[in-house]
């Protein structure tokens, strides 16, 4: 029972951080006890971490920097940790968004100065993608990040 609880509780500082290095991916794996898989691609690699109800993919540039994260499942990952230094600007953009009248339902697109966040669905079928446009490997089409 305790094992199950561990799997589904996203502990603080469990997730790799956008704009930071591969070390945080390893931290992830240790803390989440999820199944981890590494997929090499031309010019980057994808680390997949799977835990109950949620799959997270972290996109790493050759220098180890995480330039994008996607997720799919019944909830959001811990965005505070996942976005790291970018969380504040995400939060500010969210606050501005919530004050305007054109509220989006079911599909969502939020852009801050350095970060793009897109989500769709609702639990149990939520999907999300967050990336740092200025960190994308040159020539990598966005459709490869999902």
């Amino acid at each position: 029972m305790f094992f199950l609880i561990c799997l589904i509780v996203p502990a603080k500082s469990a997730l790799a951080v956008l704009g930071e290095g591969k070390k945080s991916v390893e931290l992830d794996h240790q803390t989440l006890h999820g199944d981890r898989m590494s997929i090499p691609r031309a010019g980057y690699s994808i680390e997949t971490i799977q835990s109950a109800g949620l799959t997270i993919k972290e996109y790493l540039a050759p220098n180890g920097t995480i330039f994008a994260v996607t997720w799919e499942g019944n909830r959001f990952p811990d965005l505070v940790t996942l976005f790291g230094a970018y969380y504040n600007e995400y939060q500010q953009a969210s606050d501005i968004y919530r004050k305007q009248t054109k509220i989006l339902h079911g599909a969502f697109h939020l852009t801050s100065s350095r970060l793009v966040v897109q989500t769709a669905g609702r639990s149990p079928h939520l999907r999300g993608r967050a990336y740092l446009p200025s960190y994308l490997p040159p020539g990598l089409p966005l459709k490869d990040i999902e």
Partner: peptide
């Protein structure tokens, strides 16, 4: 989906994205 209040268009179809107050649309 009646609970999604816009069309969602796959981003490999090139269409300008608004900036400013309608960013994201």
């Amino acid at each position: 989906d009646s609970g999604t209040n816009v069309f969602g268009i796959p981003s490999d179809i090139p269409i300008n994205i608004c900036t400013g107050v309608n960013a994201g649309f």
